[in-house]
Every structure is written in structure tokens, then in C-alpha cells.
Measured scan of single mutants.
Amino acid sequence: DTFTFTLDGIEVRLHGASEELIKTIEELLKRDIRWEELEKWIREWEK
């Protein structure tokens, strides 16, 4: 599955994202998160 969203005018596609990761990103997007914050968060998630 591919999860697609737009952040700061950039279309982002995550391939093979888990349901948990998708739900977490959706929550972060509701908080009007900035790209830099999401990028940092995703790097931490990957560890």
C-alpha cells in the first residue's frame, strides 16, 4: 500500500507504510506540523 499526503506543498508517498505509522502521521498533520518536524520524526521512527 502507498500512503500519499501533501505537506508544505510537497507530495509525499510512503510505500509499505504500516497502519500504525499512517495513523501517527495523520495525527501529526492535524497539528499543522512542518516538514522539518515530520522528517525528523520519520528518521526516529526508522531506528
Score class of each variant (00 low, 15 high):
Arg13Trp: 08
Ile22Phe: 03
Trp45Val: 05
Trp45Gln: 05
Thr4Tyr: 10
Glu11Phe: 05
Gly9Leu: 06
Ile10Pro: 00
Thr6Asn: 09
Glu44Pro: 00
Val12Ala: 02
Trp35Glu: 01
Leu28Asn: 02
Phe3Ile: 06
Ile42Asp: 00
Ile42Tyr: 08
Phe5Met: 02
Ile22Ala: 03
Ile25Pro: 00
Glu39Ile: 11
Arg13Val: 15
Gly16Gln: 06
Trp41Ala: 11
Ile33Gly: 04
Lys23Ile: 08
Ser18Ile: 04
Glu20Ala: 14
Ile33Val: 12
Lys30Phe: 06
Glu11Met: 05
Phe5Thr: 01
Ile25Gln: 00
Arg13Ile: 15
Arg13Phe: 10
Glu26Ser: 11
Ser18Asp: 11
Thr6Tyr: 15
Glu37Cys: 05
Lys47Gln: 15
Ile25Gly: 00
Lys47Asp: 14
Lys23Cys: 04
Asp8Val: 02
Leu38Pro: 00
Arg31Met: 11
Ile33Arg: 03
Lys30Thr: 11
Ile10Ser: 03
Val12Lys: 01
Arg13Glu: 15
Lys47Phe: 13
Gly16Trp: 07
Leu28Gly: 05
Leu14Ala: 01
Ile33Met: 08
Gly9His: 03
Thr4Asn: 07
Leu7Gln: 02
Phe3Lys: 02
Leu14Gln: 00
Asp32Lys: 00
Asp1Asn: 13
Ala17Asn: 03
Glu44Arg: 01
Lys40Glu: 12
Leu29Ser: 03
Phe3Glu: 01
Leu14Glu: 00
Thr24Glu: 15
Thr2Asn: 08
Arg34Ala: 10
Glu36Pro: 14
Thr6Gly: 02
Glu37Met: 08
Glu46Lys: 03
Arg13Thr: 15
Asp8Asn: 07
Glu19Lys: 14
Lys40Cys: 05
His15Val: 13
Leu38Val: 05
Val12Asp: 01
Lys23Leu: 10
Ala17Asp: 02
Asp32Leu: 05
Phe5Ala: 01
Ile10Lys: 10
Thr2Ile: 12
Lys30Met: 10
Arg31Asp: 09
Lys40Ala: 13
Leu21Phe: 14
Glu11Tyr: 07
Glu44Thr: 02
Thr2Leu: 11
Gly16Ile: 05
Glu20Thr: 09
Ile25Ser: 00
Arg34Glu: 07
Glu46Ala: 05
Glu39Cys: 08
Trp35Val: 04
Trp35Cys: 03
Arg13His: 15
Glu46Phe: 14
Leu28Asp: 01
Trp35His: 04
Leu14Thr: 01
Thr4Trp: 07
Leu14Pro: 00
Ala17Arg: 02
Asp8Met: 04
Ile10Tyr: 12
Asp8Ala: 04
Leu14His: 00
Thr2Ser: 08
Gly16Tyr: 08
Glu19Ser: 12
Trp41Thr: 11
Trp41Gln: 07
Trp35Lys: 04
Ile33Gln: 04
Glu37Lys: 05
His15Asp: 14
Trp35Gly: 03
Arg31Phe: 11
Ile22Met: 06
